[in-house]
């Protein structure tokens, strides 16, 4: 088990190291002068421009040798300093991102967990009869094939415009100010629902299909045939098949995280939901490079953390990793 975690941690540390390096490398070696562009944009605000200019010179310190620039970058990063946002000047990027994080967590955590659980159970049921399989599988395939933003747009159009039962922009109404009242909480939930639901649906299709395929594979496994030959009840055979099929679904979740996060980004854009995706769009439109870089790092850190959590869960679910029998989860 120590070896399993050791290996995983090594990969994650290397990944983080690589990500930070990319983050440092790209603005320096891309064609053109992006930072000049960015400064040109903020130059409307002269104080901002001069502060940014100063900051930029300090941070990039082009007079310093490259290795020192690189070390400085790391030093700033470890102090939590990701620069100052040009678009939301003079807020530090870290703070801007910290304000967005709760929305992402509120959207992603329930969407990922619920869709995974519901999809797995639904897929297991679908594998049970031909009739269900023939109706559920095509829907599942269409759902996974749907681009996240398009399902979001359709839901917003149908529930927000045609039926007019859900708001389609923001995290809460403009008229309300954040307080701990039922009215406000209800309003927040109302705004949260559609982005959550569209994220949920696309993933749900994927997990249902995945489980359906895995369980059919497991029902053809030797241990299932043995139980059948011994006349074990169907319920026991299905339960074993499900337990075995959940494992690849769990490693699948780890592999899908990146795609899900990308889906969340565009879903937030559709619903103007103030998470990192929405920030990112604003940052791109305003060429706020510090903010873009910050978003990049936060996404990476989030995905790495989630991966680590899944690894821990995997060890809890698969006894073989605990006994050091297999080293590879994902």
């Amino acid at each position: 088990m120590r070896k399993y975690f050791g290996r995983k941690l090594l990969i994650y540390l290397l990944t983080f190291f690589l990500a930070v390096t990319i983050d440092w490398l790209i603005p320096r070696f891309m064609p053109g002068n992006p930072v000049a562009n960015m400064l040109a944009r903020v130059s409307v605000n002269s104080t901002a421009a001069s502060v940014m200019q100063e900051y930029y010179t300090h941070l990039f310190g082009l007079d310093l040798p490259l290795w020192q620039q690189y070390l400085n970058f790391w030093a700033n990063l470890l102090r939590g300093d990701l620069g100052i946002s040009a678009y939301l000047f003079p807020k530090p990027v870290t703070q801007v991102l910290m304000n967005a994080i709760p929305y992402d967590v509120a959207l992603l955590l329930p969407a990922i967990l619920l869709s995974w659980l519901a999809g797995n159970n639904f897929g297991a049921v679908a594998a049970r009869s031909k009739w269900l399989d023939n109706t559920v599988s095509p829907i599942g395939y269409i759902l996974t094939a749907t681009p996240y933003m398009w399902l979001g747009i359709l839901l917003a159009w149908f529930f927000g415009i045609i039926l007019d039962v859900f708001p389609i922009a923001g995290a809460y109404s403009f008229s309300l100010s954040p307080t701990l009242s039922w009215k406000f909480i209800g309003d927040v939930l109302l705004h949260w629902f559609l982005p959550f639901f569209s994220l949920f649906m696309v993933q749900f299709g994927g997990w249902a299909i995945g489980m359906r395929n895995m369980i059919i594979y497991e029902l053809e496994a030797d241990y299932s045939h043995y139980l059948e030959a011994l006349g074990a009840p169907r319920s026991l055979i299905r339960r074993y098949a499900f337990n075995n099929a959940v494992l690849p679904q769990l490693s699948g979740l780890a592999l899908q995280l990146g795609v899900i996060v990308a889906g969340a980004l565009v879903t937030e854009v559709v619903f103007s939901y103030p998470g990192i995706g929405y920030l990112l769009l604003a940052a791109i439109q305003n060429q706020d490079y510090f903010l873009i870089q910050g978003c990049f790092l936060f996404i990476i850190i989030g995905v790495l953390l989630a991966n680590f959590v899944i690894d821990i869960v995997y060890v809890l679910v698969d006894p073989r990793t605990r006994r050091g029998m297999t080293g590879e989860a994902a």
């Binding site: 496994a221 030797d222 241990y223 045939h225 043995y226 030959a229 011994l230 006349g231 074990a232 009840p233 074993y240 337990n243 075995n244 494992l247 698969d318 006894p319 073989r320």
Partner: peptide
């Protein structure tokens, strides 16, 4: 109906005995 006989009256040691047991149960 055969389930009542399987294991109780008629049993099998399968060819695939190496993989016959659920890998994630003791």
């Amino acid at each position: 109906k055969m389930d009542a006989y399987r294991f109780n009256e008629i049993s099998i040691i399968p060819q695939y005995a190496m993989n016959a047991m659920n890998p994630i149960r003791k």
